[in-house]
Each structure stands twice: as structure tokens, then as C-alpha cells.
Design a binder for these strands. Sequence first.
DNA 1: GTAATTCCTCAAGTCGACTTGAGGTCAAGG
DNA 2: CCTTGACCTCAAGTCGACTTGAGGAATTAC
Lengths: 144, 144
Amino acid sequence: MDISEVAKISGVPASTLRYYEEINLIRSVGRHGLRRVFNSDVLERLALIALGRAAGLTLDEIGSMFTEDGKPAIDRQLLANKADELDQSIRKLTTMRDGLRHAATCSAPSHMECPKFRRLMGFASLKAGNAKTKTKKPPSNKKN
Amino acid sequence: MDISEVAKISGVPASTLRYYEEINLIRSVGRHGLRRVFNSDVLERLALIALGRAAGLTLDEIGSMFTEDGKPAIDRQLLANKADELDQSIRKLTTMRDGLRHAATCSAPSHMECPKFRRLMGFASLKAGNAKTKTKKPPSNKKN
DNA sequence: GTAATTCCTCAAGTCGACTTGAGGTCAAGG
DNA sequence: CCTTGACCTCAAGTCGACTTGAGGAATTAC
């Protein structure tokens, strides 16, 4: 398969595929002229990468989940840790969501006078760890 | 109050306070020599900012929640939207967490042979929106 | 009075995951 | 055979929210 086919099927832009290859996350099996040729098993690998990303792993962490010969060698401990992290995030986000929900409908004259809101404010300042929750903007993904 | 006091009380580094002032998120009330002087109400504002950050708002969005004269003018619609976004994220993270949890303990010889894992993989590739969930590393926060 | 703090400004750097662009190459279709 | 379009490389740019560092000034401590 050539790169555009992999891109089309996987939904991963060609530029990203080149980048992934550069950092050794995926491999092409050779070249046809100067064009990369991919084996179809790259698709499964990409799915695995997508899963890792969705779970909040860095590309480095994902990279460490493959053995030298390309087979997945998933670290169960890492997975469990990530699950715990997600759990933390979920709790926090849930608190925030409820707080926002309340603030959006609260009838106090000013939010500053609403006790729930103030409590939430205190909570946020305290554990100033941040949980980013970006909903991805489609990165101008014109499929070549 | 001078900047180091605000930093100490709020937990926000001085460099960040300067940055926030630069982008008009907070205001100092004057100078003592060349040093900024802050009014104590900046603390409430910082708490509000922390809350916004924790809820996933950008600094721009947070900035738009204050009126020209510095009073909070919270946009209930924005809050409700953010709450919905959080809800989306929570759902997704929950799926991921459960998936990871399972993967971490699954007894299938290879993850690739576990139907649940494969289903999760498909799920992740499909909706390739990403939910970042970084647990903040303390940014070398030596409180001057 | 002077040294030591603490603060200042401004430009540039950081991080992760990519994207963009200029300039070049090559294989397939007409 | 030659054009065209898909692909290539490599360097640099992007985004958000800050941090870092150099070089300087004013305040506080002694």
C-alpha cells in the first residue's frame, strides 16, 4: 500500500504517518522509487496507537509498548497506572461538570454569593493540577 | 501586597502573575518604585481563574468572563456548554478507563486476541478526537 | 553608605504532536 | 517521450500557557 491509501483507510494524515515513521512508531516495508510502501499490518498498529492516544499515553509511552520485532508487548502495569490516572481525571471532571452545571443555572444574584460556587472555587485553587480536556479541532485535514 | 505575597498565598508563581497581568487577566493597582502592588481582591480573581482552568477553559475564555470594570460577568451559556463538553470527555474517559482496566488484567494470550480489546481499539480509531488528560507535573515551582 | 534582596523588562525557549512550505524526484498515463 | 501529479526531504512554524535568563534598578537590611 502506498501512503495515501494508508491515510485514507486509517484516517491518519500522510504527514503524520511520515512523522510516526521518523520516530519509529511505525515502519514501512520498503520503497517503490522514493515512495514508501506499507504492509497492511500497519493499520492494526495505527489502531493501537490511536487507542493509546485516546487513553492519554504519549507517543513515547506507546512506542515502548512494542518489541523490537514489532509485536505489541503491552505493559500491564502501565495500563493499570493509566487507568488509575484516568479515574482521577474522571472524578475531577465530574466535580467540575456538576459545578459548572450548577453555576449555569444558579439563581444567586452573583456567583460570588453562591456558596456552592465558592466551594468549587476553593476546590479548584487547592489542587491546581490541571486536566486538559480539549475536544480536538479537525486539523485542517484535507486528505491529499 | 507585593507580588511574592500574592504568589505565596495563591500558589501562583510570580512569573505567571506577571504574565496574567500582561494579558489583562489580572491587574495590579500601582507600583512602589518599580514593584507591582496588588490589591487583595486579586486573590479571588485568581481563584476564579484557577476554577476556569480546572474546568478546561482557555485563558481567553476566562478573560471574557470579566467586565471592563473587573467584576465577574459569567456567561451561563458558556458554562453550560463547557459542562456538556466535560460530560463528553467523562464518557469517553470512562470507556477508556474500563478498557485499560480490562486490558491490564485480561488473560487472553495476546491482547490482539481479546475481543474486548479489539472492540476498544476500533472505538478509539473511529472517534479520533483526543481527550488530553495530563496530570500536571509541578513546574519547578520554587516559590521565590 | 553599601551590600544583598527582590523585583523589573523583554526576548527567547519549552513541551508534544504535528503541520506547512519550498524545492525536488519519480512512475504512471496519454 | 513527456507531462503531471503523487510523493519525497528537511527545516521551520504552530498552539497555549508559561518559564527562563540576561541585564538592570530600586528597596531593605545591616
